[in-house]
Design a binder for these strands. Structure first.
Lengths: 343, 343
DNA sequence: GCAGTCAATGTAATCCTTTGCATTGTCGTC
DNA sequence: GACGACAATGCAAAGGATTACATTGACTGC
């Protein structure tokens, strides 16, 4: 019951071997003889020894930790992704650090700094807003192999990305509305400058063009993925003279705000106007009306990103230079917020 | 552009002082002369030195990290709390580790193990389901001061708790319904064995008794905080001969499922039946009808817990033995899901 | 002019593992 | 019977910071 916890020295003493042998017995069991190995295990039990991470990290020049950059932990969209990521690292000895880039944006050189001072071995960024300079700095330090993007990415920076096919999701949404008979389809976007915003808008407009549907300028309404922005969009739509019969929203949360605002304004969803979301968050199937949306497998996105990073950390030489793009499929989930347009 | 990053030795050489002086200049600037200090800072700039965390942790016998135990990262309820916690540690040098106890439950001795092998300095547990043995083990190791509970807690274990006044929240809900004229009030609980479930149910039943309201057994419906359980509860209520005119749900998510199920069964909320939730998650004000609920300041809960843990880590002697209970107030937020009972 | 004080700095031990290299002993082979 | 190969283990040097203790000078007060 000594206050100080057991060290490898203690184990070595009890097992009557050297510390080197203890170390080997634990991390590379085949290198030691059967009897010795057992003696060591026995001694470990007896002393309650656990390897000191700091010492190991110091010696091995690694951090045994990865950092997840999340734009805003407060958004329900991320929670399942994080659960996936954290599960992806569950059987490894990597600790998962989480940083909210909204509540505290990364300082200049902070990212590279975390690597240099041995706090982390790798990064999964859900934030496409990481500054290109920060990334360039990391790459110069030879840390390029240790960064993976998830969901979002940085245009022009050559890092591996795990994401869904956003444009395809948008196309699915438009096609669904078109099949129901809609021709007047509006879009509430995400925040300006966001890669998802761009991809979804692009998919939306290209499909609308392909189907030869009208595309007045004011049918593209600027939002920012928030419920509030959906609510604001509703007011704009209510005020339009030439009102669309359907709206495709860049996120489910936007759709909720939109529907709430439309109903408050006297329009019924889907009787008067159809709404499609994007993401299929948990709430969507229980919203009233249950939301028609584009589903992405968030849990899988998380585990996949974890796998990618693990690969790259395990074998820094593999797939060098080439960017492996993991694109995960999306699915249209039809529920109650879409219907044929009013006649 | 050497590949190896600068060490304190390099800085010492450049500044023409000893490593001890460099260390002091950085962590305890008053101890060195002005000129020396500047020379050191200059050398740090020049070499791009950053202190190696592993080495520092080894020497100082600390981990510079705290662990947050989250029952289920996938639940939107936690995201804002986590944002608060992470903000609470933002200006410290503590890294924030997050573990999902549902996707990977803690093994026996794992919690104490994290302390012993120097991975963490403290724990904030949002999970009241941590095994009492694990906690007892931590306490025996003298780690009792390093654990703080948040939102949930373990009955009988004497650790500091930051939480809201759950019973009071329940009472507020019942009083509100009573004031509207309701006498027949049911309750959908959280999962059995959960401390929040117990506290909220207790507040609900005691207030109902105080107001002399009827309390048939089947008006307490077992749920588990999930949307699905709310949906299931709706079926039970629809099947009742003696139907309540109002339902208080142990969580907003439950209320969503309930309302969705009730409407599907032909009952209108709040015209036919009123519903009150608990938590006031982001979605609640945009649900249709906007949800009347008990609001808790989740962000503040997070930052407060962080503060508590920091205090205890900084000064292990302070408030020793005595459990400081931080109870944060709750507020009734009246929206559109409650109305006088049908006449 | 000398003992004592104090500020500023240096020396070297310490934190605990991992691992390159050296050593020992066994066994098979020519 | 000598030698090489090889398995098993030990010795001791990293790895990079912090800090107790020692040292040096300058300065105070008598």
């Amino acid at each position: 019951m000594s206050h100080r916890s057991a060290t490898i020295q203690d184990v070595a003493r009890v097992a009557r071997v050297s510390t080197a042998t203890v170390s080997r017995a634990l991390s590379n069991p085949d290198l030691v003889a059967d009897g010795t190995r057992e003696a060591v295990f026995e001694a470990v039990q007896q002393t309650g020894y656990r390897v000191n991470q700091a010492a190991r990290n110091l010696r091995m020049r690694r951090a045994a930790a990865v950092l997840i950059l999340v734009p805003n932990l407060g958004k329900p969209f991320y929670s399942k992704i994080l659960a996936g990521v954290s599960e992806g690292f569950a059987n490894t000895d990597y600790a998962v650090l989480i940083a909210d880039t909204e509540s505290r944006p990364l300082q200049d050189g902070e990212l590279a700094g975390y690597f240099i001072d041995g706090r982390i071995d790798g990064v999964i960024s859900l934030d496409g807003g990481v500054s290109p300079q920060a990334l360039e700095q990391c790459r110069r330090q030879g840390l390029g192999e240790r960064i993976v993007f998830l969901c979002e990415w940085v245009e022009g920076a050559d890092f591996p990305v795990v994401c869904v096919d956003n444009a395809e999701g948008a196309r699915l949404a438009i096609r669904h509305l078109h099949a129901l008979g809609h021709r007047a389809i509006a879009h509430v976007t995400g925040p300006e400058g966001n890669v998802l915003t761009a991809a979804r808008r692009e998919g939306m407009t290209s499909e609308r063009a392909r189907l030869d549907l009208p595309a007045p300028e004011d049918w593209i309404i600027r939002g920012d993925f928030s419920v509030e922005s959906g609510h604001a969009a509703a007011r704009k739509i209510l005020a339009m003279s030439d009102r669309p019969t359907a709206v495709f929203c860049a996120a489910d949360t936007v759709a909720f705000g939109l529907i709430s605002g439309l109903q408050a304004g006297g329009l019924s969803v889907p009787a008067d106007i159809s709404v499609v979301g994007f993401d299929d968050i948990d709430m969507s199937q229980y919203y009233i009306p249950a939301l028609t949306t584009i589903s992405q497998d968030r849990h899988r996105l998380g585990t996949r990103a974890a796998e990618r990073l693990l690969e790259r950390l395990g074998n820094p030489l593999a797939s060098q230079g080439s960017t492996v793009n993991d694109v995960i499929g999306v699915q249209l989930v039809v529920r109650d917020s879409t219907a044929p347009p009013p006649t």
